[in-house]
Amino acid sequence: HHGSGALAALHADGPHAGLPVTRSDARVLIFNDWEERKRSEPWLRLDMSDKAIFRRYPHLR
């Protein structure tokens, strides 16, 4: 199991509170979210491209 239990660094406060600090933090969040959702949506594709990251977390651009 590759990303399970990996912890992402999140901004503690300010405008980005609760959001990932780096792209690799964002990838951890996206992976964990996908892993949760694919139980009920097995067709869901995992997209951890930069484009997917920016779409979801525009502050990382």
Rank of each mutant, 00 (worst) to 15 (best):
A6D: 09
D33R: 08
E41M: 08
R37G: 04
G18M: 09
P42N: 04
R37A: 07
K51S: 11
D13N: 08
W43V: 03
A52M: 07
W34L: 01
N32L: 14
Y57K: 00
G5C: 14
S49N: 02
K51N: 12
N32C: 12
S4D: 12
P42K: 06
P20Y: 00
A26P: 00
E36R: 13
W34Q: 00
P20F: 15
A26L: 01
R27H: 03
R56D: 03
D13C: 12
S4P: 11
R39Y: 10
R23T: 11
L29K: 02
H11I: 07
P20V: 01
R37E: 02
S40Q: 11
R23Y: 15
R45G: 07
V21F: 04
V28M: 09
R45A: 15
D33G: 04
R37S: 05
K51A: 13
E41R: 05
A12Q: 12
R55I: 11
E35I: 15
V21I: 14
A26Y: 02
A9E: 09
R56K: 13
D50E: 08
W34Y: 11
S24Q: 12
F54P: 00
E36I: 14
H16I: 09
P15E: 06
I30N: 01
R61K: 11
F54S: 05
P42F: 04
D25T: 01
S24G: 15
V21A: 12
N32A: 11
G3K: 12
D47N: 11
L44R: 06
R37F: 03
A52D: 07
H1L: 10
S24I: 09
D25S: 10
R23D: 06
H16F: 14
L19E: 05
M48R: 02
V21Q: 07
S40L: 12
G3M: 14
A52G: 14
A26N: 00
G3A: 11
Y57E: 00
F31H: 06
L10M: 06
A9G: 08
L10I: 08
S40D: 11
I53E: 00
A6I: 15
P15T: 06
R27W: 04
G14M: 03
R55P: 00
L46K: 01
L19I: 02
R45V: 14
H16S: 06
R37C: 05
P42E: 03
H16W: 15
L44F: 10
F31E: 03
P42A: 05
P15A: 12
V28L: 12
G14W: 04
D13H: 09
D47W: 03
L7K: 13
G5R: 15
R39S: 11
H2E: 10
H16R: 05
R39L: 14
H16P: 03
K51Q: 11
S24M: 14
G3S: 10
R61E: 07
V21L: 13
D25W: 04
L44T: 06
A26R: 15
F31W: 08
A8Y: 11
H59N: 02
Y57L: 04
H2M: 12
R39C: 13
E36D: 11
L29R: 03
S49T: 07
A9H: 14
N32M: 13
E41W: 06
D47E: 05
A6Q: 11
S4M: 13
T22N: 06
E41K: 09
H59A: 01
W34M: 01
D13Q: 10
